[in-house]
Design a protein around this nucleic acid. Sequence first.
RNA 1: AGAGGAGUGGCAGAGCGGUCGAAUGCGGCGGUCUUGAAAACCGUUGUACUGCAAGGUACCGGGGGUUCGAAUCCCUCCUCCUCUGCCA
Length: 424
Amino acid sequence: MLQVNIIKEEKERILKGLAKRNFPHAEASIEEILQLDQNRRETQQQMDQLLAESNALAKEIGALMKSGQKEAAEKIKGKTAELKEASKSLGEQLNSLEEQLTRALYLVPNIPHESVPAGKSAEDNEVVLENGAIPTLDKGAVPHWDLIKKYDIIDFELGTKITGAGFPVYKGKGARLQRALINFFLDEALQADYMEVQPPILVNEESGYGTGQLPDKEGQMYHATADNLYLIPTAEVPITNLYRDVILQEKELPIKNVGFTPCFRREAGSWGAHVRGLNRLHQFDKVEIVQIQHPENSYQALEEMSAYVQGLLQKLELPYRVLRLCGGDMGFTSSLTYDMEVYSAAQERWLEVSSVSNFETYQANRLKLRYKAEDKKTQLLHTLNGSALALPRIVAAILENNQSAEGIRIPKVLVPYTGFDIID
RNA sequence: AGAGGAGUGGCAGAGCGGUCGAAUGCGGCGGUCUUGAAAACCGUUGUACUGCAAGGUACCGGGGGUUCGAAUCCCUCCUCCUCUGCCA
């Protein structure tokens, strides 16, 4: 969430940023926050004063009791009763104000970076670059949902039987290709100095709030209600939350973690024409990179992460493009997001395979993730993450783009991992 | 899952109703000494809110209660350890 003091000090910039996102009622929300904050401070000052008084009286009573002046002590006791009453009710007010303030702040999205283009939807995203030749397929080329049947490598019906729609079963070379991609992505990340972590894939409520999935995306996560735990929609949640309530030394920065996890998304109500096959699933595998950065270096780190992800796509010989998301299409918690899309030749469309974002202090503020600066002050850090990469659409693109009459050619870099160079 | 024990500052560990944001040791930081280092010695060393500041307030696992006053007593939840059971 945004920091109140920044809202206060840079109100114009905040309002401009919210406008870029087409955030409705921005002015009213900001005014409400400032008002609540004002009330909060006044209430706290009053309460602190009462508490100070009653602390002083309690000390006095202590001293009197010690010197045996019981009656004098009893006299003062009477006074403390009303102080207590008053401070208690102020305390309740304060709690309620803080709660309202937090709730109001949760509803305000992050402020876009100045380079983020204005815009309403995906149509307004800016194409930063395109790379790689778009393959021309032989006549008779088919989309991946036909290929997986032809070669019997991914089985949706079987997944439906044991779980439901959107939970495919990978079989034979299909399963091995998955495993190969995961290992390839992890090895590449290790080469780039990321530390591998294996986090839990169920998280508690606090973690959901920490990275911003809660409260606004509640319906998109699977919820194990008996234990009040959520299945993670991305490894971003557990990995970033490793650093919740942490104060890092400046010299420990940057933190670079990579983790492989399955991801679960309910994707409620989003099933339609474009989501056939592997394009959208309830469970999928993803390797995620997370960085915790000094505020001064975070945008440089974002560019490096973008370049890193592009390197993976190049090694996989996939044609891709990079988008800078517009204000209207960007995620709630992000300041700047690059989407990487690969071209899926048989579907003749671009598929998002990675999203790399800088959240600046938005998550860090919720997480209370800070560092101790040279001058001993603790300050919020910047968090970043990116998919590197999400598997299903990579698989879809490999299958479609590399198909021929002989079978599906496996990209060279993967062959040491798969142990085969063709699916036939 | 059942029985018992425990949760205090970066770590270890005292305190068990007032003088406790908290002894002491280790670690960290700064300094003296030294050609340099070690040792020794001196000093310093949590977080947040609030205030122009001085200062004030809160925090001893979380929440609630008793009391004029709680790290200390009570309730509740969570976590960890030991034993028993179960289990990949």
